[in-house]
Design a protein around this nucleic acid. Structure first.
Length: 282
DNA sequence: CACGTCACCTGCGTGC
DNA sequence: TGCACGCAGGTGACGT
């Protein structure tokens, strides 16, 4: 489910709640419930409970695909992996607690009767409670939407590797936030074959690629993310996919059927005519 | 260093 | 209807 735009959508939801209700900044945490132990990467379940109770939520932001909930001196980091989601709701009326949902893995109880649930069907998601978020996010590459990443730097970084462009873009050490959907979409916009060696891009192609990446991410954020599971949140990006999961459909540019191949063990969608692999390009 | 394979998990769509 | 199979938005540990 979540790539950068979906994580950004969730972060905004945690910051603002819905229609002005359910915002979590300013609240304090009065209890926690861990329903699946392996969800918690760090620290131990008992230390987690002890440390998190009494903490105040100061702000929520994002680094790559990590949600960062800044507390009083500690930071709660959440990675949604494939199927994670966050939900804020009214916990109880009087003494009766609302039943939890299937696949809820961790629940935080706030001081105003709200509860925040981390729900994760496939159990791949992870949560860390640490003093220094860089312990977890320190090795991430640059934020693609940050202006400090210039086209020149991006081009240089591409040329520091000799790798297929798609797996490189999805490598979180190289760039933080790209996933399978947005990478396929960006490569289509930039007219680059997913297997193009990263050090063969011309400065012009690198520039076009960075612009394409920023365009798909911004569009994704504007549409509140992509997935089917996100419809309730207003996510709409799936309706704008040009290649992802459109195998066999006509390319929007040249009408050639979109192809699906496997690159780096991931399903990869592209137009074989618009996205040619020219290994001899100047 | 680049790349392949497997592991971690559950659920859904497809085709027999 | 039942069932096997392939596939899924991510990542990290290994082996070559």
């Amino acid at each position: 489910m979540p790539e950068l735009p979906e994580v950004e959508t969730i972060v905004r939801y945690l910051q603002l709640g819905e229609r002005g209700h359910f915002a979590i900044p300013g609240r304090s945490i009065i209890d926690s419930k861990l329903l699946w132990e392996r969800t918690l990467a760090e620290p131990s379940p008992s230390a987690f409970k002890k440390k998190i109770i009494g903490q105040t939520i100061h702000k929520v932001d994002r680094r790559g695909k990590f949600i960062q909930i800044h507390l009083s001196g500690l930071v709660l980091l959440i990675h949604l992996r494939m199927s994670g989601d966050m939900r804020i709701e009214n916990d109880h009326k009087k003494d009766k607690e609302l039943p939890l949902q299937p696949h809820d893995r961790l629940v935080l109880y706030l001081d105003n009767n709200l509860r925040v649930a981390f729900n994760d069907t496939r159990k791949f998601g992870r949560v860390w409670l640490v003093d220094d978020p860089l312990k977890v996010t320190g090795q991430l590459g640059p934020e693609p939407l940050d202006d400090s990443l210039t086209p020149e730097t991006f081009h240089q970084r591409l040329h520091q590797h000799h790798r297929q462009i798609k797996p490189l873009l999805m490598d979180q050490h190289f760039l933080a936030g790209m996933g399978n959907i947005y990478t396929d979409e960006a490569l289509f916009l930039a007219r680059l074959h997913p297997c193009t060696p990263s050090d063969q891009l011309t400065p012009q192609q690198s520039d076009t690629l960075l612009t394409a990446i920023r365009n798909v991410l911004r569009e994704g954020i504007q549409q509140n993310g992509s997935s089917i599971d996100w419809v309730y949140r207003g996510g709409n990006f799936q309706n704008t996919f040009k290649v992802y999961q459109r195998t066999g459909e006509a390319c929007s540019t040249c009408s050639t059927p979109i192809e699906r191949i496997t690159v780096g063990q991931r399903g990869t969608h592209f137009c074989p005519v618009c996205q040619t692999l020219d290994l001899w390009n100047p």
